[in-house]
Design a protein around this nucleic acid. Structure first.
Lengths: 109, 109
DNA sequence: AGGTTATATTGCAATATGACCATGAAGACA
DNA sequence: TGTCTTCATGGTCATATTGCAATATAACCT
């Protein structure tokens, strides 16, 4: 992020990815996929929502380019396309930690 | 992210932060704030939307704990509360790069 | 073909989001 | 006090998102 000027779609493309990660169910899915590829049926159990709802969340992640699919018989396995989510989660944790410290400071002071 | 079980609000809190970053205007604001603190009037010029719209985007960022404010006369300066956005942006860039490679592979192959 | 399982898609209702306009609150200054 | 500037908030509208139910699609089996 060092350019002087940025095209209009510069932030739009980046925001689309952040937005795809901006839902608890999708975050749960992505987190689970960090360990291994998982089929839709198992992800549906994990999330605890309707199968159609989970399928929609998965298509959001897929459109963002965050996950990919592999067909195996009647099942479809989803896997992460990206390995960098480490940095993403670390950033989120950092923000949460700072927020917690601020809350504690407000209570204590 | 190594816990076996996670509370219901675990992903909700994290998703709220990702969601706050999931809009091009807010991403533009956060990016600009990486260099220095900026008042609302200047951010309004930068984003190019109505002042009230920018003000609402700023409140979203503030509620997420991503920015903080400092009052100076009639002006309010916004500044980043977090320095970890490096990792966040790097992750996004990584995804975009992979998406680009995939598109090129589709065209070329 | 018929039946079962696994996913995706569509339709619809409820809710959330984003943009603008208009207004309100607070500081600076004559 | 009045006015100007800066920013926030309420109102309203258009659009997007989310969730479930229902249906479609595809693979596999008999």
């Amino acid at each position: 992020m060092t350019m002087k000027t940025k095209s209009p779609s510069f932030y739009e493309r980046r925001a689309a990815i952040a937005k795809a990660l901006g839902h608890p169910s999708r975050l749960m899915i992505v987190d689970a996929l960090q360990e291994k590829e998982i089929c839709v049926c198992e992800l549906t159990d994990l999330v605890g929502a309707d199968q159609s709802t989970v399928s929609r969340h998965l298509s959001v992640l897929k459109n963002a380019g965050l996950v990919d699919t592999r067909k195996e018989g009647p099942m479809i396995f989803y896997r992460l396309r990206v390995k960098c989510l480490e940095g993403f989660f670390m950033c989120i944790e950092n923000v949460l930690r700072e927020n917690l410290e601020r809350e504690e400071a407000l209570v204590g002071g």
